[in-house]
Design a protein around this nucleic acid. Structure first.
Lengths: 294, 294
DNA sequence: CAATATATTATACCGATAGTCCAAAACATG
DNA sequence: CATGTTTTGGACTATCGGTATAATATATTG
């Protein structure tokens, strides 16, 4: 991922958010980011692929920060769940990326639609698991329902809000409000055994998405590669983290809580410095690998 | 509204539903309905206007049939509400018009977006009123919230379902399921006074939409016009209904329950016969007028 | 019937769009 | 300096929504 390419990506994201995806022409992106058409189509095979890259980046960012929020915390703590949900909302720069999601979901391009669908399912899947964390294993048969409903309520309230109000949405208020609604719904569903999605569908949500993490070897390689990329001059602290991660991963039985803690510090160390994007990518990979260990 | 124009409208609707709005080109519509480009742009000033006409028609149809379902019934009967909600779902030919709604909601055209937004608000407004009918006046401050949430849940479940299953959705099962969720939510909101949308927003939902019915004079004119349109030969029963409606409307204090009953029979009388579309339009106007009387 | 008005057709055209292609220039690297 | 890669800028294609128009078909009417 080139530096320049990343700049183009950011410009495109801004334009998509400001003007909408379909109303932003490739030419707009070219003008705004001062590159030629050839370069753009050298970076991305199409406008759609450009959007995909943006959404994928947002997804990675969300994943990393949601993981970091849970380090050493109680899985059933509702406040953490609230914060995690808010991450996506805030990351979407005041709910303006979500509309893009939806707009494209109904677009003509079937490839793009499939892509968006998978991200949506991944989000459902994540929230389903987290709801089980919070509401206990009795909630297993109903967590998928609640996850989908929670998303639906959130999205529609955002729509309605933007339709009747110019003020900014208080997203914290919204999410806590919605979780109270789930508080009302969940016990009823459990006691009356009233589920909508059958369990096999629930499993589909979890398994179909199946983005698989890299192997340990690939991860180690990425880490060493990054370590070499760093000059001897810059950020010795950052390099230390990488070395430590490598040692811990190479050990017979890597301690998860150690990895978690270090990878967070590692990412934070690069915040605002050069190679921040690469460090972020790397953190994402580590988290994905940690997920496979648990 | 020409007969041919109506045919084009139906063809366009089918194409939009089958292939999606943005992926259906005007040329597709021309080919499929065997008209020339000139004729199309004689009927509709743009592709967007064509879609508007389709959505407006669906809206009118929904309105009439929802009204008819309530004739002589208990306003608080949940089963009626279920049926009313189902009308829109079924009318959208297995939920395929709703996606069009959403697709266009995020389209570039601001005019079209405003149009869709108004329809959405009208739907919110309707459901809000009906929820008050069902749950009593204690529910007033929370009905708008629940209406929006109900819509959101429904929409998102439809999405998720279409993403993981090829089977057809049992929409009755879905709506009853969702109303049970509202059953869980509403008491909690009332007892804890936990509303999201403040009341002024709630009023906005109701008033902003403000599609105003015609005056009594205009309505009478439409009815007499329709009566003259009918030949002396066809459907004497249908003509009787029109005459009766005219008399009742002209009387000093038209009895609502009489109007309601007759207008339903009037519409049913023309089902499958010529002038059915016009009769339907007329029924819609009468219902709108009746709304102003209550 | 004939004359007029209206509706329809076919086609050429416009501007904007996404995307392709390519030769020349700029840049980087050994 | 030489070699390989990236970038450039513009010409080009195809499709799209929409306009314009002249010729033709269909109704209406005197």
């Amino acid at each position: 991922m080139n530096d320049r390419k990343r700049q183009v990506l950011l410009t495109a994201q801004r334009l998509f958010i400001d003007k909408g995806f379909s109303t932003t022409s490739v030419q707009d992106i070219l003008d705004e980011s001062c590159i030629s058409k050839g370069t753009f189509y050298n970076y991305f095979s199409s406008k759609n692929e450009c959007l995909k890259a943006i959404l994928e980046h947002a997804h990675d960012e969300t994943t990393v920060r949601r993981h970091e929020l849970l380090i050493g915390q109680d899985l059933s703590d509702k406040h953490i769940l609230v914060e995690q949900i808010l991450i996506r909302m805030h990351l979407n720069r005041e709910q303006n990326l979500l509309p893009i999601f939806e707009a494209v979901f109904h677009s003509g391009d079937s490839d793009l639609r499939g892509f968006i669908k998978n991200m949506l399912l991944a989000e459902f899947s994540w929230l389903t698991r987290r709801l089980v964390d919070v509401y206990g294993k009795d909630a297993v048969p109903y967590a998928a329902d609640c996850a989908v409903m929670l998303f639906g309520m959130m999205q529609q309230i955002l729509h309605a809000w933007s339709a009747v109000s110019k003020e900014e949405m208080d997203s914290l208020k919204l999410v806590t409000f919605l979780l109270r609604r789930i508080d009302s719904i969940m016990p009823g569903m459990i006691s009356t055994k009233d589920a909508f999605f059958t369990e096999d569908v629930f499993f589909k949500l979890n398994s179909d998405v199946g983005e698989q993490a890299e192997t340990k070897e690939q991860l180690l390689e990425s880490l060493t590669g990054f370590s070499e990329l760093l000059g001897d001059d810059a950020l010795p602290a950052g390099k230390q983290y990488v070395q430590f991660l490598l040692e811990e991963l190479r050990s017979e039985c890597p301690r998860i809580f150690v990895l978690e803690s270090i990878v967070r510090s590692f990412r934070e160390a690069f915040k605002g410095f050069s190679h921040e994007p690469e460090a972020h990518e790397l953190a994402y990979k580590v988290w994905r690998y940690v997920d496979t260990l648990e």
